[in-house]
C-alpha cells in the first residue's frame, strides 16, 4: 500500500531543507512561549515532537502554517518566508496539510464535501476530478463507504481519518499532526496510527506532535524533545530512547513509558 500524492515533488531537490526555522521566538502576551528555536526539516523526513504539556510543541507546528504569528526569527517553507502577506500565507497553507487534535471537520458538509472543498476552491480543480481524488484517498484511509455521511455520524477514529484524507486532498508537501490521537479511545488510536504509518511509508514529510512513543520508534527519523519553549534535545529514535542525553529527557521518558 502506498500513497503517491507527495512523491513527485519530493524527488526534485533532496538537499535543501523544506522547512527552515531559525531563531524563532514567540510570546503570548508577556509569556515567552518559544525560545530561539532552530530547526531544519528535510524532504521526506519524519519528525516526532514530544514534551510535557505547555512545552510549546503545538505552538511550534502551528507557527509553521501561521495559525500562530511569531514575533522574532524566520520560518521558510519551501523557499518562501512566512510574512504578513496574505497571498503567500494562503499558498503555504495549501502546501502544508494539518491534522488537529479535535479533527475540526466541517459539520455542515458531508465527508466527501469536506475533502473536495479546498481542492475545488483553492486548487481550482474540476469537481469531477476533485471527487475522484477524494474517493481515492478515502479508500486509502479505508472509509470510502462513509463518503455521503456527515461528520457527526462517524466515530472519532473515522473522523480523524477523514481529517487526514481532507489534508491529503490538497496534495501537500508537508503534513503537520497536532496530537492527532489525544482525543481518541485506545482502539481508535490504532486505526489512526496505522493510517499515519502508511502515509509515512509513502514518503511524505511529516511533523508529528504526539505522545505515542511506539509510533515514534517505528516511523521517526528524528525525535525532538521540547520543554519550556526550547528544544532540549533531538536524536534518532534508537539513541533518543536508549540513551537520552539530558536529565530532563530521562525524567520525561520514565514518566511516559512507565504508564
Amino acid at each position: 500500500m502506498n500513497i503517491t500524492v507527495a512523491s513527485e515533488k519530493t524527488m526534485t531537490s533532496e538537499t535543501h531543507p523544506i522547512i527552515t526555522i531559525s531563531n524563532l521566538n514567540k510570546w503570548y502576551g508577556k509569556f515567552h512561549a518559544l525560545k530561539d528555536i532552530n530547526l531544519d526539516v528535510n524532504k521526506t523526513e519524519k519528525i516526532v515532537i514530544c514534551g510535557p504539556s505547555g512545552s510549546g510543541k503545538s505552538t511550534l507546528i502551528r507557527c509553521i502554517n501561521r495559525l500562530e504569528v511569531h514575533q522574532e526569527g524566520s520560518i521558510i517553507v519551501d523557499g518562501t518566508e512566512l510574512t504578513d502577506d496574505v497571498k503567500q500565507i494562503n499558498e503555504i497553507r495549501s502546501d502544508v496539510g494539518m491534522v488537529f487534535q479535535h479533527f475540526n471537520l466541517f459539520p455542515h458538509l458531508t465527508v466527501l464535501e469536506n475533502c473536495t472543498l479546498a481542492p475545488i476552491w483553492v486548487r481550482k480543480k474540476p469537481k469531477i476530478e476533485a471527487d475522484e481524488l477524494a474517493m481515492e484517498l478515502l479508500k486509502k484511509v479505508r472509509i470510502p463507504e462513509q463518503s455521503q455521511k456527515y461528520p457527526g455520524q462517524l466515530s472519532g477514529g473515522q473522523q480523524q481519518r477523514v481529517a487526514i484524507a481532507r489534508a491529503l486532498c490538497m496534495q501537500p508537501r508537508v503534513m503537520l499532526f497536532d496530537e492527532p490521537t489525544s482525543a481518541l479511545d485506545p482502539e481508535m488510536i490504532k486505526e489512526v496510527l496505522e493510517t499515519m504509518i502508511e502515509l509515512a511509508d509513502s514518503g511524505m514529510t511529516m511533523l508529528v506532535v504526539t505522545h505515542e512513543m511506539g509510533f515514534a520508534n517505528k516511523v521517526a527519523d528524528r525525535v525532538i524533545f521540547m520543554d519550556e519553549g526550547q528544544i532540549v534535545e533531538q536524536n534518532n529514535p534508537e539513541n533518543f530512547f536508549s540513551n537520552p542525553k539530558s536529565e530532563r529527557t530521562k525524567l520525561f521518558l520514565s514518566q511516559i513509558l512507565n504508564h
Binding site: N65, L67, V86, M98, F100, F106, L117, A118, V122
Partner: peptide, 14 residues
C-alpha cells in the same frame, strides 16, 4: 468554534 476557523485556514481558504 475556533477549530473550524483554524481548519479552514489550514487548508488554504481565503
Amino acid at each position: 468554534s475556533k477549530g473550524q476557523i483554524e481548519a479552514a485556514r489550514s487548508i488554504g481558504l481565503t
